[in-house]
Design a protein around this nucleic acid. Sequence first.
RNA 1: GCCGCCCUAGCUCAGUUGGUUAGAGCGCCAGAUUGUGGCUCUGGAGGUCACCCGUUCGAUCCGGGUGGGCGGUACCA
Length: 489
Amino acid sequence: MDDAKPFRPEARNPRGFGDRRARDLAAERSILASVSEVYERYGFEALDTPAFEYADALGKFLPDSDRPNEGVFALTDDDDQWMALRYDLTAPLARFAAQNWETLPKPFRRYAYGPVWRNEKPGPGRFREFIQCDADTVGSARPEADAEIIAMAVEGLEAAGLPRGQAVVKINNRKLLNGLLSTAGVGSEGQKLAVLRAVDKLDRLGPDGVRLLLGEGRLDDSGDYTKGAGLGAKGIEAVIAFTAAGRGGRSETLDAIAAAIGGSAEGDEGLAELQAIGVALGGLGVGEDRAVFDPSVVRGLEYYTGPVFEAEALIEDETGKRISFGSVGGGGRYDDLVARFTGERTPATGFSFGVSRLAATLRAANRTPGGEARGPVVVIAFSQDHMAEYFAVASELRAAGIPAEVYLGQSGMKAQMKYADRRRSPFAIMLGEDELAAGEVSIKDLDEGLAASKSLASNELWKETRPGQYAVKRAELVAALKQRLGSRA
RNA sequence: GCCGCCCUAGCUCAGUUGGUUAGAGCGCCAGAUUGUGGCUCUGGAGGUCACCCGUUCGAUCCGGGUGGGCGGUACCA
């Protein structure tokens, strides 16, 4: 006799993890299908890798501690090996490429999609589990490989529902800022990193805030002090001038960048790469309104070694306010990632769509990629005596490719109609005593009924009129429904 | 991680200067309408006032702690 209160766990999601219902899944699948189709059209082969990797294969690992770096979800398996959920699709690709390099066709072109996990603080458009759709070329150092990746990003955006003018891919090159900093006498990697972080905040803090972060440091609104990069006044202005070098056209921007970075071997290399990317983009038919050079783009991931890309949505909500949960995709060149495993420098470049964020952005703009999720045709269950007949109807519909179900709850007809309504069913099928006697079946078109109800004030009239309801011969049910479904489209 | 604000019904929020029975709108369920989703009307269910500890005769309210949410900031391989 245990009279202790039974433990009742609270039914809730882990923080940053969300349930996705039919309409969310339809949107996601639609984006995945259209982007995958673009990737395949460009000749990229599909690959899936496991959710888990050994933690050391994912990169950051603290050898002096038995815990992998925060930011990933990690655990040890039975053999005390540290495993971590993948935080993107690029690191697993690097592992796969290194492992199978001998037998792969080179350059290796592959795309992949699936969930990735990050143990970070969630926010709007920022999840701890989200879907990426990624394409990479491993084994080509040519800027044309980068250009092709960018072209796919542009086409993918369009296929996913962001046509010309509603999204833009911004392109930069890490080598430019590196060259500039070398010329300015900034040697240490730590200082360079601090500069990158500062520039990354340009959109949020503005040039003056970034100036503080490039110099001594900045005190923010919450009273927190952030130590700066420690650049001198000349260095600060050189960096700011560089980030402001974006112009309308790609070649004008290149000229402005060239003037801003001064001369350095690394900077010139980066400039030449961008130039070649620009030429290739022209050949690929990617207009200057869809892919631009933008020196203010940074990207957080440290593994990028050259060109970096970022996709941004340019759409507004009803009030004309720009919708932004951050970038909807990003990528770049990472020439050292495979070398972590093989010791051999292997050039690689790629781009990932943040499918979940893209879906969230489109939803915020009241757009539903993949269309509305509709429920099945619902066969009303009038009486226990005729259940077999109801199931026969459902089977006929299913055989004809029409999603259908018999109501299996305990409630009366009114509740069954309500159920069909809530399922967003297109039709309810009624086979009561009257219909059975007449050899007929009643079809209620729920959309039509709803539309008609707007002009009916009283419930009596609504019931009498039975808007959207038709009787057909029992044998003609499937044909009649097919016709109605077809004319709807 | 750090700083600030917040936590009352499924949701959005009132309210109690510390006192018996905590409210609204929306949503949900049911009836009016025994074979009809909408509209209308009527009724109903639903709350350990986030949790724990303290102060008090008495705490949803005051104090402390914990957890969660939001925002800022840091980090983001």
